[in-house]
Write a protein that binds this DNA or RNA. Structure first.
Length: 562
RNA sequence: UGCCCCGUGGUGUAACGGUAGCACAGGAGAUUUUGAUUCUCCUUGACAAGGUUCAAAUCCUUGCGGGGCAUCCA
């Protein structure tokens, strides 16, 4: 036995699910942990799924010999589509997880689930019910009143076996009969009031073709799939809590190879966005966004296109923890996690979103001076790059104010600023067009200032050599919604009315350092934020850049308060 | 008007009957050729009332608040 050193630093605390898993390992209940991520292929994965993926795959990674299965919960061919199967696999892999050879489908088990159904029937625990949908609903009772028994509840096992076989043979039309578990029509738990476990659906299945015209319901398929795969911990979200007694009942009453433990945790909610598949689908179908992977979407593919990193998302999932408390997490937490990750890894470039011309009056005509600049000051290993300095520059419109407000220390008439990686320049002349708009700044540079220490209170601004800069379209994104919680709006209000009309701002005049366009992944435009090329719309010679997230900006924040 | 689950700073979470801590957000300062980063320091908290105990965020009771459950959805 090892003796824990009392002076050892406290181990990082485990969430309640990891604690259960660890205890089951310690007690010898299980030699390894087997979890599963069981998406239904009827939509794209979102950040809420990422939480579940990090939990299930993470748990397996943390214990040698343990594993996590990827299982498609494809029990309803009427709603599912293989289009989603591919995206789901891509997203899980992109997040950095691997199921190895453990890729399964609930439909792989249709034969065995059917056998379990036969077993339940033979034991008198299941019956074929001829009641139509409305009748089933009417006799189920209400939340406060018990239901009433189906008149078909007393059929003999022989009769049920025969009828079930004929259901399977396609003798009856959709909806005409169901197989029900015989439990308790008076149970306070509605899920136990003789739930339907098989229904007739004469719909071909993506994987089993037309082999079946009856399909198991979620409750029937899920637990048995878990048991068949030897899952030790079946982790799901809170809304399945009331299903757990049924999960247990179904497994207990057949010769299942094992009995996994279902554990529920609360799903992720984020402020200023939506997480339900229904609403996400609505945005896509109504054309309110540019597809499932619109960079404003909380989908994994949207976050990827936006420039979020897998490690940033994983870090976020780690930070939010796992509990049963119904919470809404501040979107700022996700942004902070991705900023932290990107700050360490993203190469830096210069880009100008809204250009303003600056002409250096004392720069030798035609001279080009290559300046050396760190690729990432936060990473000494990253090396340097060269950027050309000339007398014709582009600076950011925001970095000049004709009548500077107190506290503003960028350029203004007569003021000096430091050009990032370069020289000090002074604004001597302000050129305007007929409408009074500032179109150009002119002034000298200080040749001695290249390596001089900048004076306190002198701003450092970004710039580009006009002749070397490459035009690019830049898309700035803001929160999808104008309200933190779209569920918390007045009755009768359409949630789509809370969509933020300013969630996308397209800038057509931006210019960027050419090297930015050949940099893979997400990079930083110094002082502006993190950006990446839009995988959908960027083309050679016509780059489109997405802003992933801004840098923290205490100046802008202070201004916003005024 | 049934059953189940959940209530810790603004937000997300720790503690496993013994000093309420962390992250984000917020504030003050230092450093800085990114108003970034980094580094200091600071503000803010137990749903309520009873009970058990030397001692309660933790255990019990009740109330209050939030969420879930009546698809042949998952």
């Amino acid at each position: 036995m090892s003796h824990p050193a009392p002076e050892a630093p406290a181990a990082e605390s485990l969430d309640f699910i990891r604690e259960i898993a660890q205890e089951d390992l310690r007690s010898g209940k299980h030699p390894v942990i087997v979890t599963r991520f069981p998406p239904e292929p009827n939509g794209y994965l979102h950040i809420g799924h990422a939480k579940s993926i990090c939990l299930n795959f993470g748990l397996a990674q943390e214990h040698p010999g343990s594993r996590c299965h990827l299982r498609f919960d494809d029990t309803n061919p009427a709603k599912e589509d293989i289009e989603y199967v591919e995206s789901i696999q891509e997203d899980v892999h992109w997040l950095g997880f691997d199921w190895g050879t453990h890729l399964f489908h609930a439909s792989d088990y249709f034969d065995q689930i059917h056998d379990f159904a036969l077993e339940l029937i033979a034991k008198g625990l299941s019956y074929v019910c001829d009641l139509p949908v409305e009748e089933v609903r009417a006799t189920r009772g209400t939340l406060t009143e018990p239901g009433t028994n189906s008149p078909y509840r007393t059929r003999t096992p022989e009769e049920n076996l025969d009828l079930f076989a004929r259901m399977r043979a396609g003798e009856f039309p959709d909806g005409s009969r169901t197989l029900r578990a015989k439990i308790d029509m008076a149970s306070p738990n509605m899920n136990l009031r003789d739930p339907v476990i098989y229904r007739i659906k004469k719909v071909p299945h993506d994987r089993t073709g037309d082999k079946w015209c009856i399909y198991p319901t979620y409750d029937m398929a899920h637990g048995y799939s878990d048991a068949l795969e030897g899952i030790t911990h079946s982790i799901c979200t809170l809304e399945f809590e009331a299903h757990r007694p049924l999960y247990d009942w179904l497994i207990d009453h057949v010769s299942a190879p094992c009995h996994p433990r279902q554990i529920e945790f609360s799903r992720l909610n984020l402020t200023y966005t939506v997480m339900s598949k229904r609403k996400l689908l609505e945005l896509v179908e109504k054309g309110l966004v540019d597809g499932w992977d619109d960079p404003r979407m909380p989908t994994i593919s949207g976050l990827r296109r936006r420039g979020y990193t897998p490690s940033g998302i994983r870090s976020f999932c780690h930070h939010i923890g796992v509990t049963k408390y119904n919470s809404i997490t501040d979107m700022g937490l996700l942004e902070a996690a991705v900023r932290e990750d990107l700050n360490k890894t993203a190469p830096r470039f210069l880009g100008v979103l809204r250009p303003l011309k600056f002409t250096i009056t004392n720069w030798p005509a035609g001279q080009i001076e290559p300046l050396e600049a760190a690729i990432n000051p936060a990473d000494p290993e990253s090396g340097t790059r060269q950027i050309p300095f000339t007398g014709e520059l582009l600076i950011e419109q925001d970095d000049f104010m004709e009548e500077p407000t107190p506290g503003y220390f960028r350029l203004a008439p007569g003021r000096t600023a430091r050009l990032r990686h370069g020289y000090n320049v002074t604004c001597e002349d302000v050129i305007k067009d007929d409408t009074g708009r500032v179109i150009e700044l002119r002034g000298p540079y200080d040749p001695e200032s290249r390596h001089s220490k900048p004076k306190k209170g002198t701003a450092v601004i970004h710039w580009l050599s006009a002749a070397h800069a490459v035009p690019a379209e830049v898309r700035l994104y803001d929160r999808l919604l104008t309200v933190p919680d779209p569920n918390d709006i007045p009755d009768g209000t359409d949630w789509t009315s809370t969509l933020n009309p300013e969630s996308l701002d397209i800038l057509g005049q931006a210019h960027v350092e050419p090297a930015a366009l050949t940099s893979p992944g997400t990079f930083q435009f110094e002082r502006l934020g993190y950006f990446c090329q839009d995988s959908k719309h960027s083309q050679p010679g016509k780059p489109v850049l997405n802003r992933t997230v801004t840098l923290k900006d205490t100046w802008a924040k202070a201004q916003a308060k005024v």
